[in-house]
Design a protein around this nucleic acid. Structure first.
Lengths: 235, 235
DNA sequence: CGCCCTATTTGCGCTGGCGCAAAGACAACG
DNA sequence: CGTTGTCTTTGCGCCAGCGCAAATAGGGCG
């Protein structure tokens, strides 16, 4: 449906593009569906495709040799993934897995390159997006290195709520089919610590837990928890 | 001295540049010196300059609100810093501090932009450098989230030795004026843990410690330590 | 050569967070 | 509407790593 075309406008990578170019993109796109649990690509594979998520959720993870994996990024609808890799022509650094059933639009690298030749600003925008994500990761790195598990979990919830929260009368609903384990991989903690922490917060009336979802009742309080324990009360 | 010009060739950002362009860069550069402990720039300042380090050492750190800082990157001679920020025209995400007395070449943003207009590949190269650093940080993020302090410290030493190690007859010397505290900020541990770990390794004959320096005797052993405790002995 | 300042080491006690294991809660499916 | 598999919670014990405090060791400078 042409609703998809309209959604392309919302993709940050494309916002600067003139309509003719967007039409060109749309025409050369290939719809790709993926069942929950399936993989768009794996890390270290050559980046031959870029994707825009229309519907569903994708998680991007990094595995180490024999080490547990970490969750670097959650992709929400109208976001691109694999684009930076395809544009610079490298390997995918991460693995992209469908968390739920997904609808996407996909482009082959050579088609993108052709379009970029006509609209170089596309590469420019990709650069800026990459830099922005880079900086977000730097911040998360600092948090991981210096803050407590509780703070990191609070921050993760806030980010998720910001990225994909659904406003409800009782609060902000995060319904991302994210297990406790996923949250642990985002925050560099363990499944158990996440569970205990969320349970505690539920007892405090801060939020309401569900399987794979969280309803945030008191956002302000959560922000307080995410913030360092306040500068020393000076004495 | 024109030795500086020759060194520009070694800067990854410039390797693809034709000699005429390199000459142009050199001519519009301004030499900047900095004493140990002084700052080239602070995070969140507008990026008005980019630098190439000729001599000395620079460390780039990220501070959190009231949180301890982390050390994201060590800059060795013939590396650029602040370049990505200046080229995309954003703020500096990090603070750059001279660890030792430093000699650099510096460019104003507007001059860079002018040269980029003539040699767009410069922006392209900057893009690729940014992506590369992004990926290195992703790896470090995974390590920080999933590996032990000992492993992370071993890895940090290996990286440093790789980046700026001086081969000696007795082993690889890392002489970067890096304190135990700096190592701790690189690895997300504490000064005490770094000290204890290095002392232990010295007792094991793995390396030799000095003030602000480390001499690696047994690199292979260090690699073993950096690698996960080997897959379960299968049973 | 000796003093002083700063970096480093190390003993000690403490605790945040891990991870097993078992019990409990959901959702899906037949 | 019960069964089954998966996700989640929680009690419990444990230990890696933190951080204070005090001792020690260099290096640089007068």
């Amino acid at each position: 449906m042409s609703n998809d075309f309209r959604n392309l406008r919302k993709v940050k990578l494309f916002t600067e593009l003139p309509t003719t170019a967007l039409q060109l993109m749309y025409d050369s796109a290939r719809p790709v569906q993926m069942e929950a649990g399936c993989f768009f690509f794996h890390q270290n594979e050559r980046a031959e495709m870029m994707y825009v998520l229309l519907d569903g959720q994708v998680k991007m993870t990094l595995l180490g040799p024999e080490g547990r994996q970490v969750l670097i990024r959650i992709v929400a609808p109208c976001e691109d993934f694999g684009a930076v890799s395809a544009i610079v022509g490298s390997d995918y650094p991460l693995t992209a897995e469908a968390v739920t059933r997904c609808r996407t639009l996909a482009w082959e690298q050579k088609d993108i390159m052709r379009i970029i030749d006509s609209y170089p600003m596309l590469r420019e925008t990709a650069f800026q997006i990459a830099v922005k994500r880079f900086r977000q990761l730097q911040k998360r790195f600092r948090e991981l290195a210096t803050e407590s598990a509780e703070q990191r979990i609070a921050r993760a919830l806030l980010r998720l709520s910001n990225q994909a929260g659904l406003p409800k009368t009782e609060g902000m609903l995060i319904d991302l089919a994210l297990s406790r384990g996923d949250l642990a991989e985002m925050t560099g903690t363990s499944l158990y610590t996440v569970s205990r922490t969320l349970s505690q917060w539920e007892r405090d009336g801060l939020l309401k837990n569900g399987r794979g979802k969280v309803l945030i009742r008191d956002c302000a309080q959560l922000i307080t928890l995410a913030t360092p324990p306040e500068n020393p009360p000076f004495n």
